[in-house]
């Protein structure tokens, strides 16, 4: 087995599902987001303002979040999947 796709659940805080791609040693998390992704709404002086937590979520689908500081989400397509598969499998020499 090169790697496995492991369903983690539908009950995911801030998302609508999670599947992990990985080996026993390393994994990448795919999250299912609805269009726009999770938002924080503030109510300052009676004015509501929506703040998107992640950028790059423009339609419903599976996404991978690149970094916790930039919070950029990439839609999982063949290219993203292939490069992540390489990342989780190529570094390990067992």
């Amino acid at each position: 087995m090169v790697a496995e796709l492991k369903p983690i659940g539908l009950d995911i805080i801030g998302a609508h599902g999670r599947v992990d791609l990985g080996t026993h040693y390393e994994n990448r998390k795919f999250l299912y987001f609805k269009d726009g992704g999770p938002v924080i709404t503030t109510k300052i002086e009676g004015q509501k303002k929506e703040h998107k937590i992640f950028t790059g979520i423009e339609e419903d689908g599976w996404y991978w979040v690149e970094s916790i500081t930039l919070k950029k989400a990439y839609k999982v397509n063949r290219e993203v999947f292939s490069s992540l598969l390489e990342e989780v499998t190529s570094k390990w020499v067992i």
Partner: peptide, 28 residues
């Protein structure tokens, strides 16, 4: 039973954003 799950990465993002908004409100 297990409640909703979250990764440590998303925990960081949601908790730090929450504190950021409180901090911004205090500094208005």
């Amino acid at each position: 039973g297990s409640p909703g799950k979250i990764s440590y990465e998303d925990t960081y993002i949601f908790l730090s954003d929450f504190l950021n908004f409180i901090s911004a409100d205090l500094n208005r």
